[in-house]
């Protein structure tokens, strides 16, 4: 019962949704829409579960006085601070305190975190671009050409540089990307079928 019922629910829900393509009747579509709404509600609950999990892990670390525990306090306080601002202090619209915190704290933090990767990507490039094989050479040369072609200095070096970069993007790059997309789509479809038929059961937690 502990395994069979979830597998049956998963199978029925998945097959039900696959039928959407074949039965485009208005009333049937309204049932699909209702079940889709249910899924969205459950995902909202999953967010709450995730928050509860964050709190559980961090409270545990604080309780045990683990290394860096004061930062866990910062995490928990900022989490509650943001939720409290959004729910009890004027909502999330433009001009609210929630909006202010987003633009003046979360946005700078997020963009600087990603900007920081520019430095690490440079050191990664140094390792990746050591041309030892034909494959590494292709990767390095393409990356350099794309980068040069996208900045003004590229056009200064050669008038047709931007067009050449465009050709790389539209032909050889697109061919590789398309192969990846088709391969990934086939992989995702087969994985979804494995989930629906109960061959893939990792979501059951190891049983």
């Amino acid at each position: 019962m502990r395994r069979e019922i979830p597998i049956a629910i998963c199978f029925l829900a998945g097959i039900f949704y696959t039928l959407e393509l074949f039965i485009p009747h208005r009333q049937v579509l309204s049932i699909f829409e209702t079940v889709r709404q249910w899924a969205q509600i459950l995902i909202a609950f999953a967010y709450v579960l995730a928050i509860a999990n964050i709190l559980r892990v961090n409270f545990h670390a604080i309780q045990k006085n683990q290394r860096d525990w004061p930062y866990k306090v910062v995490l928990i306080v900022s989490l509650f601070f943001m939720i409290t601002l959004g729910i009890f202090f004027g909502g999330i619209g433009e001009g609210t305190i929630f909006d202010w915190v987003y633009y003046h704290a979360q946005y700078p933090l997020q963009s600087t975190m990603f900007a920081l990767l520019a430095f690490f990507i440079a050191s990664a490039a140094f390792r990746a671009f050591r041309i030892r094989t034909l494959e590494a050479a292709l990767l390095a040369v393409t990356a350099v050409l794309v980068m040069i072609g996208r900045v003004p200095v590229g056009e200064e070096l050669w008038n047709n540089f931007p067009d050449f970069t465009e050709w790389i993007m539209n032909v050889p790059q697109l061919a590789g990307k398309r192969a990846i997309m088709i391969g990934a789509a086939l992989g995702a479809i087969s994985t979804a079928l494995k989930v629906l038929t109960g061959l893939e059961r990792t979501y059951l937690g190891g049983e």
């Binding site: 019922i5 949704y17 696959t18 899924a39 789509a185 937690g205």
Partner: peptide
Amino acid sequence: RWPMALVIGIYAGIAILGYM
């Protein structure tokens, strides 16, 4: 596992059609 199975089933169904 019940709600999890429902969500995973729905999104697996959507994924099959979506990726196709």
